[in-house]
Each structure stands twice: as structure tokens, then as C-alpha cells.
């Protein structure tokens, strides 16, 4: 049987390469065509407003009249604005306490659900249902549940002899109240962690049990490392959400729940940004505030990504 051999760069090799390139180009073109609606949407409704807000942050802009370029004045003003410092402090406080608590409660509930057996389906739905509650309703719910006189929380506390605080008016207790009510929507994280738990290979537990490992050892040596990817996802997403927290606090302390009463302890950064932009019509200043928040979130996310290399395990990842 005759065989032919071609050296590299021979005509047939070149035409095969060309055909491959044409095919790839066609595929790329088709792919771009299919995603172009999203790209256009992203450019028009996300990228352009972001870029434009960067420009607005350098202007004095009242929404109606033309923006007037003022350089870095808005950023300078932020440094001198005590309410920016207060709002940042409130936001950091909320984030530092809320995110770990949120992840721990999610994990605890997911572990319980994992062991729930046949009733897991019911509890999965039960845990997820509160997530469907509109955040505005959660804000109003906060005022009812945490009412210092007749709220359910203080009533329950009184059963064990604790005289509950004035959650909704005492500045010391306003943020803890908001942190606790944020656990209302823990359901989605529970579902994600439960899915991750169900993906942990059973053989690992079997081997550990043969080696005499107890529940705690199995949890810390197998479960947590194996679901660390999902936990990291929840951690990072909730950190970003915590920095941007708005609706529940605004409803309870600045909006429908209290049209005139407010509490400095609940003045989160995005609430102050909203006030500046949409109530006081200082849209240039609000844009500068938005860019500062963007930078803060970016720095924290980058830090978390760096730390994730040390603590997060992805199946199939080579180290």
C-alpha cells in the first residue's frame, strides 16, 4: 500500500489550516451575532452609564441643568463630609458582622437540611420562601418584629428573663437589628450550600469513618474543604451585597416605615448616596460617592480573591 507523506508547509497542510481558520472565524462571527443583543445592552445600559458617571463625578450636576466641570472638588468634599465617614463606618460595621454570620447560619442550616432525610424537600422550600418576600416588606417587618415594647423578638427574650433593647430607636441596637433581619433571606445561600454538600463524594466519609474520624473531624477535614468553593462564592457575593445594602434600612428608617423619623445608625453608604443624588439633586457628588464605593468593593474583592487561593479548593484544580 502506497503511502504519501507531506512535509510541514506543504499545500494540503496549508489549506487544512485555512479551512480550520475560516471555520473558526465563522463560529466566532455566529457567536458574536448571538451575544450581540447582550453586548449592546451591556454597553448602552451598563458600561456607558458607568463611564458617564465617572465624568459626572467631576461635575456639579443637578439633573436638569448641564453638568459644570469642577475637577476633583466632589472627591475633596467627600473627604470633608462627616456624613460620608459616618455612612462608611456604618457600612463597614454591617459588612464585617453580617457577612460571616450570614455564611455561618447558611452553612448550619444546609448541614441540618443535609441530614434531614425525606423531609428535606419541605424544609428546602420553607427556608427559601422568605427569600421571595420583597425587601420593602422586610423593612416593615423589621419594625414590627423588633418593636421594643411589643415586638416578637423582645417578647421571646422576656420568656427567658431578658429585657430586650429598643432595637429600632437605640443607635447601639439599630445595626444589630438590621443584621439579624438580613438573615431572613438566607434561603438562597442554604440551597447553594446544600447542593455543594450533596456533591461531596460519599467515599471520602466512608474512608474517614473507617479511620475512626468523628463528625467534627469529618466536617472540618472533608466537608468544609470540599464545599469551600461554594462558600467562597457566597462570601464574596454577600460582601458586595452588604457594601451596597439599602432597601431594608431605607424602608425602615428613611422611607415608607418612617417618613420623618430617621436614625444615623442606619445611614448606610448607598442610602446617603441615594439622598445626595435623588433627594438633594447633587448627582455629581453622588456619582463621586458611587466611584469611591466601586473602588472599595474592588479592593475588598481583590483581597478575597487573593485569600481564596490559600483557603479555597476547586475539584480538578492543580496546585
Amino acid at each position: 500500500m502506497a503511502t504519501t507523506s507531506t512535509s510541514p508547509g506543504a499545500p494540503s497542510d496549508t489549506s487544512a489550516l485555512r479551512a480550520k481558520r475560516i471555520s473558526r472565524r465563522r463560529n466566532t462571527r455566529a457567536a458574536l451575532l448571538f451575544i450581540s443583543p447582550w453586548i449592546i445592552g451591556f454597553l448602552v445600559f451598563t458600561a456607558w452609564p458607568i463611564i458617564y458617571s465617572g465624568y459626572l463625578s467631576l461635575t456639579n450636576y443637578d439633573v436638569i441643568n448641564d453638568p459644570e466641570f469642577i475637577g476633583l472638588d466632589n472627591y475633596q468634599r467627600m473627604l470633608e463630609d462627616p456624613k460620608v465617614r459616618l455612612a462608611l463606618w456604618n457600612t463597614f460595621y454591617f459588612t464585617v458582622l453580617q457577612v460571616p454570620l450570614y455564611v455561618m447560619v447558611s452553612l448550619a442550616l444546609a448541614l441540618l437540611l443535609y441530614k434531614a432525610g425525606r423531609s428535606a424537600g419541605f424544609f428546602r422550600t420553607a427556608f427559601f420562601l422568605p427569600k421571595m418576600t420583597p425587601p420593602v416588606a422586610v423593612g416593615i417587618l423589621l419594625l414590627l418584629l423588633f418593636n421594643g415594647q411589643n415586638g416578637l423578638i423582645n417578647t421571646v427574650l422576656s420568656w427567658v428573663g431578658i429585657d430586650g433593647p429598643a432595637w429600632t430607636t437605640d443607635p447601639t441596637w439599630v445595626k444589630p437589628g438590621l443584621i439579624l433581619i438580613s438573615l431572613w433571606s438566607v434561603g438562597s445561600s442554604v440551597i447553594i450550600l446544600l447542593a455543594a454538600l450533596q456533591n461531596v463524594p460519599q467515599e471520602l466519609y466512608d474512608s474517614a469513618r473507617v479511620d475512626g474520624a468523628n463528625w467534627w473531624q469529618q466536617t472540618f477535614k472533608i466537608t468544609l474543604p470540599m464545599i469551600s468553593g461554594a462558600m467562597f462564592f457566597i462570601f464574596i457575593v454577600n460582601t458586595i451585597a452588604a457594601f451596597q445594602t439599602f432597601t431594608e434600612a431605607y424602608t425602615a428608617y428613611f422611607g415608607a416605615g418612617n417618613t420623618t423619623y430617621s436614625n444615623d445608625a442606619a445611614l448606610f453608604y448607598v442610602i446617603y448616596l441615594f439622598q445626595q443624588g435623588f433627594e438633594f439633586l447633587n448627582m455629581g457628588y453622588a456619582s463621586a460617592m458611587a466611584w469611591l464605593l466601586f473602588l472599595i468593593i474592588m479592593v475588598f474583592t481583590a483581597l478575597q480573591m487573593m485569600l481564596s487561593k490559600r483557603f479555597v479548593y476547586y475539584e480538578g484544580e492543580q496546585r
Partner: peptide, 25 residues
């Protein structure tokens, strides 16, 4: 080609955005 397409889509998007802008001079 992908770069050319991206440039084209970006240009189209920005043009549309500019048209839609309510705060131009």
C-alpha cells in the same frame, strides 16, 4: 475578526448611548 467585531459593536453601542443621552450640552 473578533476584535473587529468588538470594535464595531462598541462603536454602535456608544453611538446609541450618545443618542439616548439626556444630559448632553
Amino acid at each position: 475578526a473578533p476584535v473587529r467585531w468588538l470594535v464595531l459593536v462598541t462603536a454602535a453601542g456608544l453611538t446609541l448611548a450618545a443618542c439616548a443621552s439626556g444630559t448632553s450640552n
